[in-house]
Structure formats: structure tokens, C-alpha cells
């Protein structure tokens, strides 16, 4: 894919120098899902976890932290927003209010 660094052009031709980036996901409290909170740089998973703990310490209850190498993340592309995310607005029949239910019916 790329040649050795040092072509003299100033442009990076190999993998970036320094520790690789990791995306950090934190579950702030029991019962909630993990949320993406940011990125840390670390040479390996253990170091990434430690770095994340320091960087995103909520100071509250014990949390759960996940770290994932950034290069392992596959993301959808912004220009695909239209076709990729099914437009829910036009599927009115997915809304409970779409159905003609007599007013006196309860618990439905």
C-alpha cells in the first residue's frame, strides 16, 4: 500500500507515527447502554483502557468502559443518509395513532 517514509515530500506515506487511536464507549450507569465519548491514543488495549479511565472518569458510580481500535470501526457515509436510513416518516402505519380504534376501547 505505501512505501517507506522519508521521501522528503513532507507527506505521510506510511502509518501515522505514535500510538494508534482507540474509540471509547462508556456505560455511565447500570441499565444504560454504552455511549461513544471520545478517542484515546495507546499502544495496546490495556493501555487504552487505562487512558480512557483517566480521560473519561465520570467520578460517579463504577462504570463500564469499552475501547475499540479506530481502524476497526466501519461507518456509514454521510451522503448515504437518504437511502441508508429508512425514512420512517412515510411509514405512517407504524404509528399506533394511524389505526381507527373506537374511543371507548381501553388498554390498546
Amino acid at each position: 500500500m505505501s512505501t517507506a517514509a522519508g521521501t522528503g515530500s513532507g507527506r505521510r506515506t506510511g502509518p501515522p507515527a505514535g500510538p494508534p487511536p482507540w474509540e471509547v464507549f462508556v456505560r455511565p450507569r447500570r441499565g444504560l447502554v454504552h455511549q461513544h465519548v471520545g478517542t484515546v491514543r495507546a499502544p495496546d488495549a490495556r493501555a487504552a483502557l487505562r487512558a480512557a479511565r483517566h480521560a473519561f472518569d465520570s467520578g460517579g458510580e463504577p462504570t463500564s468502559i469499552w475501547v475499540v481500535p479506530t481502524c476497526e470501526i466501519t461507518a456509514s457515509r454521510p451522503e448515504h443518509r437518504g437511502p441508508f436510513f429508512a425514512p420512517a416518516a412515510d411509514k405512517a402505519f407504524r404509528h399506533p395513532t394511524y389505526y381507527d380504534i373506537p374511543a371507548q376501547v381501553q388498554h390498546l
Partner: peptide, 27 residues
């Protein structure tokens, strides 16, 4: 159990129309 409870929340939200459509169909 967290993952099960959260799955139930998603499912209940999406199922709100399932019962109503059945009732309306029968009506």
C-alpha cells in the same frame, strides 16, 4: 438483566402498532 430489559424497551415501542392493527382488522 440489562441487555434483556433494553431489548424489551425497543420491542415494546415497536409493537405498539402490532396489537392495534389486529384489533382494527377484526373491527
Amino acid at each position: 438483566y440489562g441487555p434483556y430489559a433494553r431489548a424489551m424497551v425497543r420491542i415494546c415501542k415497536e409493537e405498539s402498532f402490532h396489537q392495534r392493527q389486529g384489533f382494527e382488522l377484526l373491527h
